[in-house]
Amino acid sequence: MRPDLLLKVLAKFLIPFILIFAFYVQFHGDFSPGGGFQAGVIISAAAVLYVLAFGLELAERGIPLRALQYLSSTGILLYTGVGVACLLKGGNFLDYSVLLDNDVAGQHLGIILIELGVGITVASTLTLIFFTFAHWSRHS
């Protein structure tokens, strides 16, 4: 039996649950503890576990570095995009009430969207940092 077999089997079993938990934290953050930041960190923890179990090459075949670079700016663009949309609708920057006809519904929509932006940026940036470091440690 190869020594890393146990790690691989366990990682394969755990990663889907970690990801589902991350999505729960992301989209249930309005009602329970959590939010985009925590969800992003949990997603990148799943990526770290994958790299530890299966190696950097396989991981990069699944999530290329370039995609991570694009994703990390996508999150910020989504966040600021919501702010600009508020400006265009005649409100202040990041004043979500103007997004929809109903003030409260607009606030809720704005919060969900910017939390999504936070989650995307945090998840991809932390994964990107880890991948870059892991590249170096393999070469040294």
Binding site: G29, D30, F31, S32, P33, G35, Y79, T80, G83, F93, L94, Y96, V104, A105, Q107, H108, G110, I111, I114, E115, V118
Partner: peptide, 20 residues
């Protein structure tokens, strides 16, 4: 805000600029 979790409401709406 229609969001029961106060922390999320403050972070994402009242202090949205901070979080950005």
């Amino acid at each position: 805000t229609g969001v029961p979790n106060l922390v999320t409401a403050v972070l994402a709406s009242y202090r949205g600029f901070d979080t950005l």
